[in-house]
């Protein structure tokens, strides 16, 4: 199934209306977080089954923890594979981050120290995951709030990761912008350093900006800013027109309002209003 155009992050708040209502044509696909659905029965499963019958899905997980220094969690990976196969999902992504130590899970996307040694471990793990899932995976650049001296630049780390593992990139335009503000670099240069054929799809989202003296927070709780849209247009110019997903996890407006924002985002980034009417 070819995924293109405009996507929305599937929220539980919308699950009932999407499952039970008529097919909408103001988005092209939905991005589902497997962690929030897999292994669950009852109403959750019933709704997701109905939604999957109506809309193409991509999957974006949170707990692959590909950057940790532990063996792969095969229980989790097996559940993800079952989920992807059950819903015929071709595009699967997670994050360039870690969520686990030798003690257990921390339930957060923690930045990985960007060294050659950690890069090699991640490459080995990505290849193992891709073999197991029989899919090319994509990894997202995270927003990070902690950094140290003596590391590779994030763009170099990601570019080398993609090159060595053949994984794709889920380019989160908002994260690139937020990181550029918090860590003082030019986000255009970050984008320029990434391989032109790397991007599987784009994420856009809103952030909280309390001024130049404060840390910018990747909240997914506001409309997407003009600065992020401009950066998104720059990214589309470099990487070509790829699917765009709007993430909204806080202060969630109505589905109609979100779809209208998504239409505007797609137009601002690509210059077109989308694939559908």
């Amino acid at each position: 199934m070819i995924i293109q155009g405009r996507g929305l992050g599937l929220r539980r708040e919308f699950a009932s209306s999407l499952a039970n209502g008529p097919i909408r044509n103001d988005f092209d696909f939905l991005e589902v977080v497997p962690d929030n659905w897999m292994g669950l029965g009852g109403e959750s499963m019933e709704q997701l089954d109905a939604i999957a019958d109506k809309y193409p899905l991509v999957a974006h997980s949170l707990s692959l923890s590909i950057g940790d220094a532990q063996p792969l969690d095969m229980n989790y990976l097996s559940a993800v594979k079952t989920f992807l196969d059950n819903y015929d999902i071709a595009i699967y992504s997670d994050h360039v981050s870690m969520s686990r130590d030798s003690c257990g899970y921390l339930y957060e996307l923690i930045p990985v120290r960007r060294t050659q040694a950690s890069l090699q471990l991640m490459v080995d793990k990505i290849k193992a995951v891709q073999d197991y899932l029989s899919r090319r995976i994509a990894l997202e650049n995270i927003s990070y709030y902690y950094d140290e001296e003596g590391q590779m630049a994030e763009s170099e780390f990601i570019a080398r990761l993609i090159d060595a593992s053949s994984c794709g990139l889920l380019l989160d335009v908002n994260n690139a912008y937020v990181n550029s503000r918090n860590h003082g670099f030019d986000p255009h240069m970050f984008i320029d350093a990434l391989p032109t054929d790397a991007v599987t799809y784009f994420h856009v989202a809103g952030h909280l900006d309390n001024g130049p003296q404060e840390r910018v927070l990747d909240t997914h709780g506001t409309d997407v800013s003009a600065a992020v849209l401009n950066l998104g247009a720059y990214a589309v110019h470099r990487f070509g027109e790829q699917p765009i997903v709007l993430e909204r996890d806080n202060n969630i407006p109505s589905l109609d309002e979100l779809c209208e924002e998504l239409r505007g985002i797609h137009e601002a980034m690509t210059g077109s209003t989308g694939n559908l009417q």
């Binding site: 532990q70 030798s102 950690s118």
Partner: peptide, 22 residues
């Protein structure tokens, strides 16, 4: 599906996660 984990990578990842735990 075993991957070789270098000691310095493991200790660095552990250091960051332990800091979060603290």
């Amino acid at each position: 599906m075993n991957v070789r984990i270098a000691a310095d990578v493991a200790s660095e990842a552990e250091r960051r996660c332990q800091a979060v735990r603290r």
